[in-house]
Nucleic acid binder design. Structure first.
Lengths: 168, 168
DNA sequence: TATTGTTATACTCTATAACTATA
DNA sequence: TATAGTTATAGAGTATAACAATA
């Protein structure tokens, strides 16, 4: 029976090209599973949370900016917002300076709801990174943050929310 | 017009719970876009590459181990392998010790093909991380590797390929 | 009875295009 | 003509269950 001893031994991690992608996918899947469980009560699940969080913390000027910040299509954003509006968590208010556009703002209920779920999410993230040292975890977060910014800027469709992503 | 100045300012990265997930998703998407372009000629695309790479470098004992290592359903693996077999890159050989199982092995053509695509993939990964310092990039790779192992071990369905994942 | 691999079906995303109302 | 938002449709991807062969 072939055992693991047959495989070429690796002195450094990620010696096989493509391994980085495998690791990213595995980590993201694990994270999303925990995320999903945490926000399953929230309308729209993970994306509902992300929309609510973006609306509250980043104040996007319209739906398109909101959608492209989260990397989702504007057609999907319509459905998502319908769900959140129906649940009374956000509102669509017309932009007086551009009557085509609508600005999405949280309701009082939405803000309270987000605050509640953020506490749970923070606990989940801490638990998720608990296998790493304090320093490793914070370095991972900051490196991922930088890399995400680089990727997002090079991605098509990033333009409408550039202003939101150039925070220090 | 609301500007970014309205948002609560952040002194540290990832102060908003859930940001880690956003960053992971953004980075993975950027990575996969480049990956996809690089291996678009290969049957099965990204997954074709990953299957070929796993078969060559990790020598999984059967299809199920192969599938669960990559986090793919065994039913999907059947289709994927059909494609790769038809392209002459791998073969299914019966396991003499368990006649239900089939071991997937690369053909000579498959090995040559993988070596070729690995060179391209290595270049893509270098370019992908080029915005980071040498030290940051290698630390990111090793931390992601560790975190992926932790996640994978906790994931259901990980058992059939445990032996493959416990490499140093 | 449990497991490996295959097949068929249904469901969920996502991508695309078409439409409106404004600019 | 181009853009913000909506709607409808088709396709890819995924999950589920059922099945045959073997343990």
């Amino acid at each position: 029976m072939a055992s693991i001893a047959d495989t070429p031994s690796a002195s450094k991690p990620s010696v096989v090209p493509g391994d980085l992608g495998w690791h990213l996918a595995m980590v993201l899947r694990g994270y999303q599973t925990r995320f999903e469980d945490t926000v399953s009560d929230l309308p729209g699940g993970i994306r509902g949370y992300q929309v609510l969080s973006t609306v509250v913390h980043r104040n996007p000027p319209n739906q398109l900016a909101l959608a492209s910040h989260l990397g989702i299509d504007r057609t999907v954003m319509t459905y998502l917002l319908d769900t959140l509006v129906k649940a009374g968590l956000v509102e669509r208010i017309p932009d007086p300076s551009d009557r085509r556009a609508r600005k999405v703002v949280p309701t009082t209920k939405g803000e309270g709801c987000l605050a509640d779920f953020e506490q749970r999410m923070a606990a989940v993230e801490r638990q998720f990174l608990s296998g790493l040292s304090e320093r490793e975890a914070s370095e991972l977060e900051s490196t991922m943050h930088r890399l995400a910014m680089i990727v997002h800027r090079e991605q098509p469709g990033a333009s409408p929310c550039e202003a939101m992503d150039n925070l220090p």
